[in-house]
C-alpha cells in the first residue's frame, strides 16, 4: 500500500487528530497530535492491510527557531513491505509526549535516548532515565542551545596543548 493511502485512511479514521499530511516531501509524512499518538500507532499496528508491526526508528529533532521539538516515528511492515512516517510536535520548554512502549517494545530504549539527549519526557514510560550519559550529567546535549561544560568530576573537557 502506498504511504499516501495509509495517511488517507488515518485521516478518515481519526479526523482532526491528523494535523497535516505532507505528500510532496522526499519521504511523505503525517503530522499528528501528540495526545493521540498511542491510539494512532495501535491502529497502524493492528489495522488489516496496514500491519506496521515494526518501529524501525524514532528520533527527536530540535527546531529551536520554530520553538518545538519534533519526534519522528518511522514505521514499517514486514508483511506488506510498506512504511509510514508520523511526526509529533511538542513545545521546547515543556516537551511531553505519551510513550508508545505499549505498542512496540522497541520504543523503550529509543525513547530513553530521546529523553537523555533532548529532554523530552515520555509519560507512561516504565523506566525513563538516562542511557548514554552518566547519571549525574546536567543538560540535554542535542538541544541547539546546549553549552558544553568546562569540566566533569575534575577532568577538564578541553585539550589545552597537544604537547601536554
Amino acid at each position: 500500500m502506498d504511504a499516501d493511502e495509509i495517511y488517507r485512511r488515518l485521516k478518515d479514521e481519526f479526523g482532526e487528530k491528523v494535523v497535516s499530511i505532507e505528500a510532496s516531501a522526499k519521504d511523505p509524512f503525517a503530522v499528528v497530535e501528540g495526545d493521540a499518538i498511542v491510539e494512532l500507532c495501535t491502529y497502524l499496528r493492528d489495522g488489516d492491510d496496514i500491519r506496521c508491526n515494526v518501529l524501525t526508528n524514532q528520533s527527536g529533532v530540535d527546531y529551536k527557531s520554530e520553538g518545538y521539538i519534533e519526534v519522528v516515528y518511522h514505521l514499517y511492515s514486514y508483511a506488506y513491505r510498506h512504511y509510514a512516517i508520523l511526526k509529533v510536535r511538542t513545545p521546547r520548554d515543556e516537551a511531553v509526549v505519551p510513550t508508545v512502549e505499549t505498542v512496540w517494545k522497541a520504543a523503550n530504549w529509543l525513547e530513553r535516548e530521546i529523553y537523555d539527549l533532548l529532554g523530552v519526557c515520555f509519560t507512561g514510560h516504565s523506566d525513563l532515565r538516562r542511557i548514554m550519559l552518566p547519571e549525574d550529567w546536567v543538560g540535554h546535549p542535542l538541544r541547539k542551545d546546549f553549552v558544553e561544560p568546562t569540566e566533569y568530576h575534575g577532568i577538564s573537557t578541553t585539550r589545552e596543548s597537544l604537547l601536554r
Binding site: 546535549p141 558544553e148 577532568i155 573537557t157 585539550r159 597537544l162 601536554r164
Partner: peptide, 19 residues
C-alpha cells in the same frame, strides 16, 4: 593520546593522560 577526531565531542576525555 589527545582525543583524536573526537575533540569536538562533549562527552569525550581528550586524552587518557588527564587521568
Amino acid at each position: 593520546s589527545c582525543g583524536g577526531l573526537f575533540q569536538l565531542a562533549y562527552s569525550v576525555c581528550d586524552g587518557v593522560d588527564k587521568v
